[in-house]
Design a protein around this nucleic acid. Structure first.
Length: 493
RNA sequence: GCCCCCAUCGUCUAGGGGACUAGGACGUGGCCCUUUCAAGGCUAAAACCGGGGUUCGAAUCCCCGUGGGGGCACCA
């Protein structure tokens, strides 16, 4: 079943480190749902933990999302009807809501010191018991609690979890999840510094911002019932809850982690992927299919296709191992589907990064030659960097044709040199015909002659198609390089 | 220790009681095409975690194991 009413969804990262592909996929699914239903996609920064704050990470998040094409309707930079979109700027809201819950008798002030809590936790651990707040302050008379608070005693606000019964939480993918209330802790909602924890802040904001669907990481599954309880305490209607599976590292053992960013060739960070020559279309396509599928055969999608076809019903609840060779595959496909001018446009900064000065206009005629040969944009430099250097420097030994002597190779090169020299300019059809003719005349296989010339002209064994490359390079350049190869071969012989 | 989630080829997945000799894709091997490398085409090997049920019939439903993952903070 596809959602029909406009969905207001949010991606709510905390700025505590680098932005990775797991977050990107969560953002993607949220974005797709919003666009498909004509709803809104909101970015909210969850920065209520001052200790873990990492400067610059908010920028990385926003830059990554923009690069991927996941543009938002409301957010910390854009503002919107529910501004501000940074939780650190919304603390009064959380405080008021926490107090409201205390007044309703559904939460309470707790004066237990961190030391007492730590000691209690240690004790329980020693006795192999699950960590659990003992409810000391829950039993305080409201009047006494109010007095101690008024006296300025340091305190937090805790949720009063029912002491019996069960809580049923409904996840769109997994159905009903039931837990005994006794297994739930009286979680802290408001810290002693007056800032909320996730459990309070996210619920309040989701409600206030009119969030209809919460698509978030399955790390939240264990505290999901608590969140349902908080909604119930406020008397709010539940949103549609969807817990997305986590990403496993490429081996399939263990959750994807920072280590995986350095251990392999490919990174878990979108911005690194960009640096490595991946196109956003490929990253989006790849991410979309890790945890979601359309059918049993279609797998190449652009963002717009995904907007059209995405469906919560086709989400997969099981964890997925990251597979970079599949990313390479998608990257090749999406590079090939780019218009030539667009490919040239994207290639320009890549050559620049490799300190090869070349204009976008120079790259336009080259684009079709390499388009189906590269899997990442950076491979273009390897493949065709020789086009933009002053000269190439092949080694004589490499110039000798397969199964040939240096002398025979030299002779072949000189004949080719003369043939090219006799032409005013190079035209692909006739050049190819004449070189093929030459090979035949010399009793060589086309491959033998072309291999020699390829190395002479490009300096490499692997290159774009020889004829087109020579035409692009131009008569003078080709002549110079072929002549030099002839010299090298004659010296070697 | 306790709680929660998950379970089909190496990996991503299709499958929602009979259409399954379990389909597709990546990767891997072979062949074809071919001026190199790609791309493309064809092809091969490769999976229902185990055990009990339910049913005429189970990859599909239930239970128990096992395995994997996540969580148990004045982090998110």
């Amino acid at each position: 079943m596809t959602e029909t009413t406009p969905a207001r969804v949010r991606y709510a990262p905390s700025p505590t480190g680098r932005f990775h592909i797991g977050g990107a996929r969560t953002a993607l699914y949220n974005y797709l749902l919003a666009r498909q239903t004509g709803g809104q996609f909101i970015i909210r920064i969850e920065d209520t933990d001052r200790k873990r704050f990492v400067p610059g990470s908010e920028q990385e998040i926003l830059e990554s999302l923009n690069w991927l094409g996941l543009h938002w309707d409301e957010g910390p930079d854009l503002g919107g009807p529910h501004a501000p979109y940074r939780q650190s700027e919304r603390v009064d809201l959380y405080r008021a809501h926490a107090e409201q819950l205390v007044e309703l008798g559904l939460a309470y002030f707790c004066f237990c010191s961190p030391e007492r809590l730590a000691a209690m936790r240690q004790d329980l651990e020693r006795r192999k018991q699950p960590p659990h707040y003992d409810g000391l302050c829950r039993r305080l008379a409201p009047a006494e609690a109010a007095a101690r608070r008024a006296a300025g005693e340091s305190h937090v606000v805790r949720l009063k979890v029912p002491e019996s019964g069960r809580t049923t939480a409904v996840d769109r993918l997994r159905g009903e999840i039931q837990v005994e209330n006794t297994s739930l802790d009286d979680v802290i909602l408001l810290k002693s510094d007056g800032l909320p924890v996730y459990h309070l802040a996210a619920m309040v904001d989701d409600r206030l911002m009119g969030i209809t669907h919460v698509l978030r990481s399955s790390e939240w599954l264990p505290t999901f019932p608590l969140h349902v309880l908080i909604y119930q305490a406020f008397g709010w209607e539940q949103p549609v809850w969807v817990h997305l599976s986590v990403f496993l590292n490429p081996s399939g053992k263990g959750k994807m982690s920072k280590r995986d960013a350095v251990s392999g060739a490919s990174s878990i960070y979108p911005l690194d992927l960009r640096e490595q020559g991946y196109v956003p279309e490929a990253v989006v396509n790849w991410l979309a299919l890790m945890g979601w599928s359309y059918d049993d055969r279609t797998e190449v999608f652009g963002l717009e296709d995904l907007v059209q076809r995405f469906s919560l019903d086709r989400l997969n609840p099981s964890p997925a191992a990251v597979n970079y060779s599949k990313l390479d595959h998608f990257n090749g496909i999406h590079i090939r589907s780019l218009p030539e001018a667009e490919l040239a446009r994207r290639l320009a900064p890549v050559f620049e990064r490799h300190r090869i000065s070349v204009t976008e206009a120079d790259l336009v005629p080259l684009a079709p030659l390499i388009q189906e040969r590269i899997r990442t944009l950076d491979e273009a430099v390897e493949m065709a960097g020789f086009m933009f250097g002053e000269s190439v420097s092949p080694v004589a030994a490499d110039l000798i044709g397969p199964g040939m002597t240096a002398a025979a190779s030299a002779a072949a090169v000189r004949r080719a040199q003369r043939l090219i020299g006799e032409r005013e300019r190079l035209e692909p059809e006739s050049l190819e015909a004449e070189l093929r003719g030459l090979a035949e005349e010399l009793g060589l296989k086309v491959g033998q002659l072309f291999t020699i010339l390829r190395i002479a002209v490009t300096g490499q064994r692997v290159s774009p198609p020889l004829i087109e490359t020579m035409v692009l390079l131009g008569r003078e350049q080709v002549l110079e390089r072929v002549a030099r190869a002839g010299d090298l071969l004659e010296d070697a012989g």
